[in-house]
Amino acid sequence: MDLSKSWTITTKDFAVFRRKRSVIYGLVAFPLAIALGLPTVLALVVQRGSATYAQLTPLMDAFAFFFVISTVYLSTSLASYSIVGEKVEKSLEPLLATPTTDSEILLGKVLAAFVPTIASTLLGATVFMATVDALSAPDLGYLFFPNWTIAVFLLLAAPLACLFSVEANVIISSRVADIRTAQQFGGLIVLPFAGLYVLAEIQVITLDALALLVLSAILVPADVLLFFVSRATFRREAILTKWR
């Protein structure tokens, strides 16, 4: 596999994304809304005297899970543009006629969705951590973030969830004819992750480092399985003759 060809495809997609305002706004606005919105919620709760920051520390950890949800949501949007966008513009045929393997193209497409999503998530998470620390440090007497829980969130669970979403979107892209439909179906991938957050909120599970390691252990084989399914879907002949 020639990784430089995959990267050529990835950077081409980046150039296309730069022209799509909705993609840029999504990459900036969604993580920023989480990064600033959730600390604002914490500040309001403390201001009303309902709780102290010390009592809210489990919630601070749980809020970090929104960045896992963010990676799933954002990568859905990017993967739809990257793959279904090529379908809509009918640019896959000349691309497939080049001396590039199916795996090189697929890797290029996966990276095109993965890299901006993770970059945006990490930036958003940095703003989130800094904001929460700025608000809570005077009360707690120490910096709550970074900690092991958010490290597992950002460095393990979020990339694995992002990969899961991108691979699922490759499979979805083979079955739909337009970007909006792909995004609608892709949006369904967010549901199990949102469900986990709800379970944590109703105290059925705890989203601590251990729970995230278990989630990651489930995502690893799921990613491997989806990799083989998406690779089987992303074959030249299937793309040209079976993709809708």
Partner: peptide, 26 residues
């Protein structure tokens, strides 16, 4: 190959379209 649908990247310039393919052909 010139397929029946031109299949160009409409959000890229003419030069960038050709440069992309030139890179893939090494």
């Amino acid at each position: 190959l010139v397929p029946d649908n031109v299949g160009l990247y409409e959000d890229l310039s003419a030069y960038r379209n050709l440069d992309f393919y030139g890179r893939l052909y090494e």
